[in-house]
Design a protein around this nucleic acid. Structure first.
Lengths: 207, 207
DNA sequence: AATATAAATGAATGTTCATTCACTTAAAAG
DNA sequence: CTTTTAAGTGAATGAACATTCATTTATATT
């Protein structure tokens, strides 16, 4: 001990392998999306990710905690991307277009994130309340308020607005990520289809 | 053996307890909806339904078969209700209204069926192809064809139509069955809300 | 009442599960 | 080079899992 020891704050003497953390997360998502809930056990995940089962418990308190953290991570990443280049001051059409494009890019780039999100969205074991959406909600509410003032949007319940403006979009994207869509062939959401659908939605929402 | 024995087809000498089958199904649905995939094990289900675990294997080949049969049952019941009083000759607005009403009634009456359906819809372990939707699809396609001919509907991809006409509706109903909706209060889909939303959707779909 | 047969069962089986723990390894700081 | 500390591990544990099987039970027919 030297004279500085009493203010010495020990630094980390061995740093976590961040590749390992990433590997665990991506492998877990892949297993969950491809094989469902029962398909992902801690031991199978550990083997597939190339780590010891015990290592998982360094990163996560237990299985439930892991699932919650996975969901939170996916949700936060998604929310962040969704609002990129978006401002609540935009017109309804422009604001929706930006958000649709952001989301579509994300879903196409990381389909597993979307599939995982959809898989767990209605799942009772996820603690939805823990996910912080305050900033997201606030931004959206301002956007809606502005659109109503500009007469681009009828007065309606938030849930009705959401269903028309986003329910439609997500339904479309679900077809996009499916192997086979309604007509037994692969369906791709192109820019043209998105634009066409957006026009319809904007028309529906206008007074 | 008497002279008739060679044409004797043995009849059932003990009849399956149909209450038992119903109890198993409803208990399984309840457990799955409330506790998710991991929450329902064969032993816990047997105990909760008041039967022996071995009894489950009289009704179902194995766990996977049980889940598939549950899904198929729910899906078929739902499809049947959805088309009640519906005819492909109806106008777009009337036809959609009937179907929305049918579905809303069903979802409100049997929320577990809907929650189960949503829980498993994206689940990889369900063999979706086994569900026969031929008649359903045919009826819907004729409905769409008629609407286009009457100029009530723009020409568009089936998936786009479905997303606008039903994606919106299902999004609304998801809020309906949730404990707390977007605004942290209970949201109920009333007839007025359905009518308002339908008007918007019909407007969007019209040329 | 006796018979035949499928429904229904409780206990048992081997497997896989989540989780733990005594231990080893890596690397920053002295 | 030594010390310190957290990262990382392989093997082990008991609980819960899906499934089976030798029996028992209920009932339509004879």
């Amino acid at each position: 001990m030297n004279e500085h020891s009493f203010i010495f704050v020990p630094e980390k003497l061995r740093i976590r392998d961040e590749n390992k953390e990433l590997a665990i997360r991506e492998t877990a998502l892949k297993m969950l999306v491809e094989q469902g809930f029962d398909g992902m056990s801690m031991q199978k995940l550990a083997t597939a990710a190339g780590v010891s089962p015990a290592t998982l418990y360094i990163y996560y308190k237990n299985r439930e905690d892991m699932l919650n953290q996975l969901f939170t991570h996916v949700h936060e990443t998604f929310a962040e991307v969704a609002l990129k280049n978006f401002s609540p001051e935009m017109s309804l059409e422009q604001g929706l277009w930006i958000q649709w494009k952001n989301r579509a890019r994300f879903i196409t780039e990381y389909p597993n994130y979307f599939k995982f999100f959809e898989l767990f969205r209605n799942s009772p074991q996820i603690d939805h309340c823990k996910v912080n959406m305050a900033a997201f909600k606030q931004s959206m509410q301002l956007f809606v308020k502005n659109a109503i003032e500009r007469k681009e949007l009828k007065k309606m319940e938030t849930e009705v607005f959401w269903s028309v403006a986003y329910g439609t979009f997500y339904s479309l994207m679900k077809f996009h990520v499916q192997e086979k869509s309604m007509m037994n062939k692969k369906f791709k959401v192109t820019d043209a289809i998105m634009k066409q659908t957006l026009k319809m939605v904007v028309k529906a929402l206008k007074q």
